[in-house]
Amino acid sequence: MAEPGQGGRSGALAARAAMGRRPHARGHARRRHRRDQRRVPRPPSRTRDPARHAHGGRGHGGRPCRPARHPQPRLPPAGRPRVAAVSRKCLSKVDRHFLGDALGCIFRAPKTRLRPAQAMDGALSKSERETLKAVFRLAKDGEGAHTGELAAHLGVSPGTATATVKRLAGRGLLDHRPYRGVELTKAGRREAAAAMRRHRIVERFLADMLGYAWNEADRLAGSFEHELPQEVEDRMYVALDRPATCPHGFPIPELDTAEIPDMPPLYQLDTGDVAVVAISGSTEPDMVAFLDTLGLRPGVRVEVLEKHPFDGPMVLEVDGSRRTLGEKVARQIYVRKEPTKGSRSRREKSA
């Protein structure tokens, strides 16, 4: 019984607890009863495979079982292609074997089709041509070009430069030896000469036909030279009256040749040497402007009058004027040396 001062509800709860019954037990029983009535009994042997039973495809009790219902595969979402999910229980051992072979053919087919195409297609990509030209410029005096120097010259990561070098080495165009750098093979020199020939012909076309400055032609030529057909390159060369040099002063290699004329820096000349100036397109604009004030432009003929030892300055004759250049500036100018026969130094002229 409830103590004095307690309400009627508290007394009823205390009485139910004293009788061993939980509060609201009758309400819980009603809800369980309604939930049991809503349950739908699972049909027997709905997902059994008749092929797995040896008693004539019948279920328990000799009754024929219904055929198994395979779940419908869901379509993959929009985006990357995916294979529809199929339950393993719905496939027999033989089906799984054939399905594995089919999926293997689907995912391995692109690789097996691309390898013969790459072997048959001899065209080089833009990155491969630029890598060959960079190796030619950086590999000097019998020393190969290192991948770090190639990456800095091309403006790519070292991993990308290494991958391109390995790809070209696999095609027989580069000789890549660890700790000795990268060198061009005979076939690689031929491809590098063809790439440099195309680049310089396009530069000459931009400068002569379209009126671009010589220091702008290098930047514009690299944007579309790799997409030109060989026929267009040949017609451009003939239309330009078969030029011998590019606007920068570098010689245009002959067609189908592996010989590329050497262009040493100006500082390697000795006293009395005569050469024609060539300036690379990668030279800084401020340096180009400074050289222009001295009269040192592509195609200008210079003669070395004096050269001081221990990396000292050198004195040149440029268009009848006497010019003095330091060692650092003189190494940024390239020259095409001319035969010294018939040329006279300043001392001989004064005598």
Rank of each mutant, 00 (worst) to 15 (best):
L154R: 15
E216G: 01
L206N: 12
P43Y: 07
Y334E: 05
T257A: 10
R108D: 13
Q37P: 00
P265N: 11
R301C: 05
T293S: 06
G281P: 06
L316Y: 04
M196Y: 07
A278D: 03
D141C: 02
V94Q: 13
C65D: 12
R96E: 09
G27L: 15
D175S: 15
E338M: 14
G312H: 09
P229H: 07
V302R: 07
L325T: 08
D311Y: 12
M120N: 12
S321I: 03
T271V: 15
R219I: 02
L255Q: 11
T245R: 14
R113W: 12
V94D: 11
R242K: 14
D49E: 10
S321G: 02
R204W: 03
D241L: 12
K328I: 06
R297A: 09
C246S: 14
M120D: 13
L255T: 09
A275G: 04
E254H: 06
Q230P: 00
R74W: 06
E128C: 04
Y212D: 02
A275N: 06
H70F: 05
K93E: 11
R198V: 09
E143W: 03
K341N: 05
L210K: 02
R180Q: 11
Q6P: 01
A25V: 09
R137W: 02
L13E: 15
G57K: 05
K186C: 07
R31K: 10
D121V: 08
H53F: 13
P110L: 06
D270E: 15
G249W: 05
P73Y: 07
G181F: 09
F224P: 08
P116W: 11
L174W: 04
R16H: 04
R301Y: 00
K140N: 00
R74S: 08
T164H: 10
P73D: 06
K140H: 01
T245W: 01
D273S: 14
A169M: 06
A109I: 02
V329D: 12
A213F: 01
P261W: 02
H308Y: 11
E317T: 09
R82W: 05
F290W: 11
L138A: 02
D256E: 15
L210M: 00
Y334Q: 10
A244V: 09
R137C: 00
F205W: 14
A239E: 11
L168D: 01
L99R: 15
R322G: 00
G5W: 11
K328R: 14
R129M: 09
R69S: 09
M196V: 07
D292Q: 11
D36G: 15
V182R: 01
A25G: 09
F250C: 03
L103W: 08
L184S: 09
A289Q: 14
H55E: 08
P116R: 15
M314P: 08
A213S: 10
R200K: 15
D234R: 14
Y267M: 08
K166Y: 03
V335C: 03
R39S: 03
D208V: 13
P253L: 04
A289E: 15
G61H: 12
L174E: 09
K93T: 12
R331A: 01
D95F: 01
C246F: 05
K133C: 05
Q268M: 10
V318Q: 10
G211P: 06
E284K: 14
G188K: 08
R180V: 01
G181W: 10
G62E: 10
T340K: 14
H97M: 15
M120R: 15
M209R: 14
R204H: 10
A2M: 11
E130W: 03
